[in-house]
Design a protein around this nucleic acid. Structure first.
Lengths: 146, 146
DNA sequence: GTTAAATATGATATTGATAATCATTATCTA
DNA sequence: TAGATAATGATTATCAATATCATATTTAAC
């Protein structure tokens, strides 16, 4: 299923409509690889169709998240950021506190241990957010030089 | 060292001053166990000293975080929340997506695996945020009944 | 203790992100 | 194609957080 079809199915199930602004926002989102703010997405959508309104972008990115096409990345500060969630493997982030560089990773040992935590407390898993903060090799080198 | 002393040392080091509003906010924060918003903290501080200003609370909670007395909890939505960070073991959160119940836990297997991720990418660890989302046993029971 | 320099305070205004409102327009179904 | 329904986009509102600024407090030097 294409992303567009996923959205259409999701909308149909809930009696909502597929529209051209929504398609524009979806296209803009798909073209931007990961970690977009609503503002960036608005700019990108307006490059496709200048008439797109800000409110529509906020509404649509929310829809995309509900439909499983986008997911919210844990915000460091400022505006919320969204990344692709469909046909993109689940992953977590390793972020440099100095320069903001982001490494995406998936660690089986962590995933397994998380499942164990869920079981231990009787919770049914429905996703998680994890962000490891640290100093990247480049910034570590740079600060040593000083 | 008491929390107050930690703050004093931190301030002195940076040529900043220990003041009574700051002490009031600190006291209010210490009395509230975990996950306070700035607004809640303002209300608590005003119970001690009604003259405290909103701006001071925002400024002071930021100071407390910098001094290592508070840390920001990963926000679900709405206002940022802060919890105790000094003489409180590091822990992560397991949150119910339905009722918002929060379980604090620490899992050695996860911690070890995270260290391995840092090593693998050459990052120097400086903390992490992890939030496991799920359905708590009570809410699972309640939704089954329907 | 008094004083001068520096910093902090609190009232207010401002920003910036997001949500609500609402008249108009587009979409879907029959 | 028509009618019911939902979506759009411009605007306004909301809310947390920050900036501004005149006044007050603190600290260190005397």
């Amino acid at each position: 299923m294409s992303e567009r079809e996923v959205l259409e199915v999701y909308l149909r199930e809930r009696g909502q409509k597929m529209t051209s602004p929504r398609e524009t926002v979806l296209d803009a989102f798909l073209k931007l690889e990961r970690h977009v703010t609503a503002e960036e997405l608005l700019a990108a959508a307006r490059r496709i169709d200048p008439g797109i309104g800000q409110a529509t972008v906020f509404r649509t990115i929310k829809l995309l998240a509900e439909a499983g096409l986008a997911r919210e990345a844990c915000p460091d500060d400022g505006a919320r950021r969204f990344e692709h969630a469909y046909r993109h493997e689940h992953h977590d982030h390793l972020v440099c506190v100095e320069c903001g560089a982001v490494v995406e990773f998936k660690d089986e040992a962590i995933e397994r241990a998380q499942q164990a935590v869920y079981r231990r407390h009787g919770y049914a898993p429905s996703g998680h957010r994890m962000e490891l903060l640290g100093l990247c090799p480049d910034c570590a080198k740079a600060s040593k030089r000083k």
